[in-house]
Design a protein around this nucleic acid. Structure first.
Lengths: 125, 125
DNA sequence: AGAAACCTGACAATGTCGTTGTCAAGTATC
DNA sequence: GATACTTGACAACGACATTGTCAGGTTTCT
């Protein structure tokens, strides 16, 4: 455990930066949807001292996973929550395994909208 | 791989024994529902040479998991399929981990019907 | 100060899904 | 021959996902 000081790194993916309208436009959903995800316990954006939601890069990626799971794989929010909890519990990035299935399921389920699924980990690229 | 000969063991949990009406009554669902599960690729009961479905103990247990996931945890069939595929892919019994969450989620979601969830593995008991 | 964007909570519309149920025409089993 | 199975279709009912809006209130920016 070396990370004790939190230097304000502008590139820290955990740093809360996007207000809800910006976050919503990034992931192409209604702000309403983001609030629903939060109510369902699927995302936990930080808040300013004055209660304004601030989404980090990690939050954005998480939402992208939710969209991928729901839109491409047809999983409902309860299933998404299970998968997230499972991943946290196992300490494994099982979602990346799902990414492989995505192509199979997408091909089979006739979902050819050609929108790019969230890249599992594209930080240093 | 020692199991090559398949001796007709009456207690083999993989042995197809239950016709669909019996299987449906065991898990308390409509036969229609079992066929839907099969169409969704969630269960694969054996067939007699004359095309009659025969469910094994394992099939029954699998259906019970589906019921548990859908009724108690609110996961839809797409989510169930993902979980099954994931379990097979990881080679881990992640469903048992979900069983722990079941109590949490059931408490939170006010599901106190007191129906016994499927026992994860109760072969030699 | 005033406009714009945020907050929560509620309500509605639309489309999809899960489940049960039934009907028909055909085959298998007792 | 009666009963139970097969597939395929259709319907109904409730629940969910998503988008959208409106209200009344607070924060932020100019």
């Amino acid at each position: 455990m070396r990370v004790t000081f939190r230097r304000p790194d502008p590139r820290d993916p955990g740093r809360p930066v996007y207000v809800i309208s910006v976050a919503a436009s990034i992931v192409s959903v209604h702000p309403r949807t983001l609030r629903i995800y939060e109510d369902a316990g699927l995302v936990c954006p930080a808040r300013t001292p004055t209660n304004i939601r601030l989404y980090s890069e990690n939050d954005i990626r998480r939402v992208m996973w939710i969209r991928h799971l729901t839109q491409n794989l047809g999983v409902n929010l309860a299933g998404v929550r299970i998968l997230f909890e499972l991943e946290e519990r196992l300490g494994t990035r099982i979602l990346e395994r799902l990414y492989d299935e995505a192509t199979d399921a997408a091909d089979a389920a006739a979902v050819r909208t050609a929108d790019a699924p969230p890249e599992p980990s594209a930080s240093s690229a």
